[in-house]
Design a protein around this nucleic acid. Structure first.
Lengths: 108, 108
DNA sequence: GGCGACATGTAGCTGATCTACTTATCAGGG
DNA sequence: CCCTGATAAGTAGATCAGCTACATGTCGCC
């Protein structure tokens, strides 16, 4: 999967994995990997800046903790983040309809 | 629809509209607009450079003509372009599965 | 004459994602 | 005891597709 394809779609995906349970960065990476069937293996240089960006934007809130001698920064969805996620899901449906309307992937 | 979302998905869409009939730039714009139900209204500053990029890459071939006093550059799919389109369609299916696996858009 | 559709293009900006690197803890094998 | 690999979090700098804004010109119509 090309890197560009992700552009603009990563944010809602990140928000989605912390929708039901707060997770720390590394666990978010693993969750994305698992939910995507091994396809979405984000470099740390992508994920961590993305998380800080989402926090700065007010969609995530974080909290430090230490587990087994390792420091963790756990992120949870804010109210704004919930709204963002909901609209992100909606936008995905629109986007999918647009692409498939143009691509007509059934017609090889 | 956010602009970023398009990243990496525009190329196969452009190739798709010239799949069955060669079209000139302006007609490609109109075809995209129509197939997307009015959602995909590309600025000329996006489309024309994209067409030149696709031609430079060998996926499209162009030819000038004049119709009603106006110059047209008509693009058609090359063999490489056909292959690119086919793999682009396949990649779209993968990408869609990844996003939906993570997003689980059914669960609002 | 002027406006809107038709038609093609360039210059320069933005910013999300990438590569490559750094720092640190812990468990297990040799 | 050291080394590797997993766990955990980050930064600096490069890339490049799509954007805004601009430029040029034709045609039909009011």
């Amino acid at each position: 999967m090309k890197a560009d394809a992700l552009r603009g779609h990563l944010d809602p995906m990140i928000l989605a994995v912390v929708e039901n349970e707060p997770l720390h960065g590394y666990a978010i990476m693993e969750a994305l990997l698992e939910r995507s069937g091994g396809e979405l293996d984000l470099p740390t240089g992508t994920l961590y800046p993305a998380l800080r960006r989402l926090e700065r934007a007010g969609y995530l809130a974080s909290e430090w903790s230490t587990v087994g001698g390792r420091k963790r920064r756990t992120y949870q969805l804010t109210t704004a983040g919930q709204k963002m996620l909901a609209s992100g899901k909606q936008e995905w449906l629109t986007f999918r309809a647009v692409v498939e309307g143009v691509l007509r992937p059934g017609q090889a």
